[in-house]
């Protein structure tokens, strides 16, 4: 069976000339959690925006390759059409409507989907219930991230794309957010594509992972395998070997990267 989402060797160009993604391919099977990892500026956000169509608003384009969702090509479609198909993107930096109250945020998104049971949001993020009358801009960072994910749930997404949900949050709050994400994956059966710098956290819940650098995939594999991979441990999980990092090893890694 083909994967739910199949990104096949795409290139993305911004502002006619700036090449950001250089031939990336990923697969997201239905019912899985797939993590896209990598440092700042690697192209994780661009990949997610290319899938959601939001690059169009940044004057970007997929110039090569294709993106298929359940067999239908979706590259360079308008973002509202892509979201209608069930792909919901939760942007980094907690994109919520800050001037509106929590309740009004939920109402606004419910308008788009005709349904909208606020209890669905409060079920996974119970903290928000107590704050439903406050303006979203005054919520804590963690609560804003929870609201952003909660709003996406109202669309009953088939594929939920989360961009750096841990960004700028205290470790305890990160754990809480990830607990909720894992729970909604299990209880709602939502397929999740997760972009993260926090590789350790992402690989805790992911089934499969891709590591991107400079717009290319350098390593990919089962989450278990990546967690035990020496390079990944050293460069992304921050686990230091007792003997320290030798220059030779680092060089070997770079050389390897170039060939992958």
């Amino acid at each position: 069976m083909p994967p739910m989402l199949f990104v096949n060797n795409i290139e993305v160009v911004y502002h006619p000339y700036i090449l950001v993604l250089k031939g990336i391919s990923i697969k997201v099977p239905e019912g899985s959690i797939v993590a896209v990892l990598g440092p700042n500026g690697a192209g994780k956000t661009t990949l997610l925006k290319a899938i959601s169509g939001l690059i169009k608003l940044d004057r970007g384009r997929v110039t090569k390759g294709e993106i298929r969702f359940r067999g239908t090509p979706i590259q360079n479609r308008d973002p509202d059409i892509v979201s209608r198909m069930g792909i919901i993107y939760v942007a980094e930096g907690r994109r919520i409507f800050k001037e509106l109250t929590v309740e009004e945020n939920i109402e606004a998104v419910s308008y788009a989907w005709g349904s909208g049971d606020p209890d669905l949001v409060y079920k996974y993020f119970p903290r928000l219930r107590a704050r439903r009358k406050s303006r979203a801009g005054y919520l804590s960072g963690g609560e804003q991230q929870m609201l952003a994910i909660g709003l996406a749930l109202l669309a009953q997404p088939r594929l939920l794309m989360l961009d750096e949900p841990s960004l700028g949050l205290a470790p305890k709050i990160v754990n809480e957010v990830y607990e909720s994400v894992k729970r909604l994956h299990e209880e709602e059966g939502t397929t999740i594509l997760l972009a993260e710098q926090n590789a350790r956290k992402a690989l805790e819940i992911a089934d499969y992972g891709y590591i991107i650098e400079n717009g290319k995939i350098v390593i990919e594999g089962e989450a278990e395998k990546l967690r035990s991979d020496k390079d990944v441990q050293e460069f992304y999980l921050g686990l230091k070997k007792a003997e320290g990092v030798s220059y030779r090893r680092a060089k070997w890694y770079r050389r390897k990267k170039r060939w992958v």
């Binding site: 959601s52 939001l54 608003l57 308008d78 973002p79 509202d80 979201s83 209608r84 919901i88 993107y89 939760v90 942007a91 994109r95 919520i96 409507f97 800050k98 001037e99 509106l100 009004e104 945020n105 606004a108 998104v109 788009a112 989907w113 709003l151 996406a152 109202l154 669309a155």
Partner: peptide, 14 residues
């Protein structure tokens, strides 16, 4: 009002 505040975010939420 949501669209007025952030059309980009509003599009992402459908």
């Amino acid at each position: 009002r949501a669209v007025a505040e952030d059309p980009y975010g509003a599009a992402a939420y459908g």
